[in-house]
Design a protein around this nucleic acid. Structure first.
Lengths: 200, 200
DNA sequence: AGTATCTAATACTCAATAGTATCGGAATCG
DNA sequence: CGATTCCGATACTATTGAGTATTAGATACT
């Protein structure tokens, strides 16, 4: 009976991943409220019902934890696509996707803000995020299901930059003045980007 | 030669304001590069060629200094207005004003990010900034010199929110991916907002 | 069962830094 | 000129918080 030397210890791995997940979730929550700098590892650990020891057994440093949290954030702005959408329909979907993010604006905004400050002094991180968005550039820009006949007002790459910038800007603005930025306005904004105010 | 009892001590006042200005300027510079949290008062003082004592003789706390720096920032996005502009001209001017801000994106972005994080836990500050932007809402929205006959695609208030959001978003996006956000693209973006791509 | 191994709690160290107390020196006024 | 007042430098305290060393307890392997 050969002792399988490569039999992965399943329970440990699970335990490990569970606490890792707990720490990550706790970190995400606390950071959303207070920001990364203002949050101590003790606070994060306590919020997870654990201690700093647990944090350091899962993450090498506070910075690592921060990056892991950032990485774990879902890609936002995922419009509901259908086959053969018209341009107007496509941008309407984009607008609705962006509007759906408004409730999370506070949380998202906190992370964006932290990230920007971090990227300010970490060129490698800036690039990583830039690449991450670049993926979406294509997706949004080429509008995969978009009826080939219709053309955008701008080249796909440029248009997707604008989409990105607009949704980010709307989120921040919503954070600042929640009442001014309504879901309807967001949808209208994207309609304007589409270049065809056909619905009035 | 009556000794004026209310003769204000000019030299002290000047001296005071000079060092205050030096500290403010130094703080602004350093914060732009590293962010507020990451900057110590010693660093700021040293950058101003002074010591912490000077800082505390001018500002009650680090927070006070931060707020003073924020308050001292110039209002951005000031389009060059002429009498009787067409809508297209007006939005073109807006676009150029926004494009002109791109070189400062890094600095501006740092302050925005810091501010948002601060506003996250300081409701009063959020309101103050919101009001500050509200002023611009009117200005931009009503487009004072805009030919009365032309109408915007959206009500002034909504439109100015979008203008605000878009310029902010473009700034952040430029910070992230400088090459994607060219001045020309910024101008085009505002043309789209205007709703009339007449020049194409 | 008994031993080896890994996780996470406890209890520290150590550096950074906001804020304070004190003092020296310059400008002001009588 | 002497006394006074205010600014700003120096030297200090106190606190916070990241990271480490150690250990107890749980889990797996034979």
């Amino acid at each position: 009976m050969s002792t399988k030397p490569r039999d992965p210890p399943q329970t440990w791995a699970r335990k490990r991943s569970v606490t890792r997940a707990r720490v990550l979730a706790a970190a995400a929550e606390v950071i959303q409220e207070k920001g990364f700098h203002r949050t101590s590892l003790d606070q994060i650990a306590a919020h997870a019902g654990l201690t700093k020891g647990a944090v350091y057994s899962s993450f090498a440093s506070k910075e690592e934890l921060f990056l892991a949290v950032l990485e774990g954030r879902p890609h936002q702005l995922e419009p509901k696509l259908k086959a053969r959408m018209t341009r107007a329909e496509y941008f309407h979907a984009l607008g609705e996707a962006a509007a759906a993010l408004l409730p999370q604006a506070r949380a998202q905004g906190a992370f964006f803000a932290e990230f920007f400050l971090y990227a300010l002094t970490h060129e490698d991180m800036r690039q990583r995020m830039a690449e991450r968005y670049a993926t979406r550039f294509q997706e949004v820009g080429t509008a995969p299901t978009l009826n080939g006949a219709e053309r955008l007002a701008l080249p796909p790459r440029e248009m997707s930059s604008l989409v990105q910038a607009l949704s980010m800007g709307l989120m921040f603005q919503h954070m600042l003045t929640p009442d001014e930025i309504t879901p309807e306005l967001v949808v209208k904004a994207f309609q304007l980007l589409a270049g065809a105010p056909d619905g009035e």
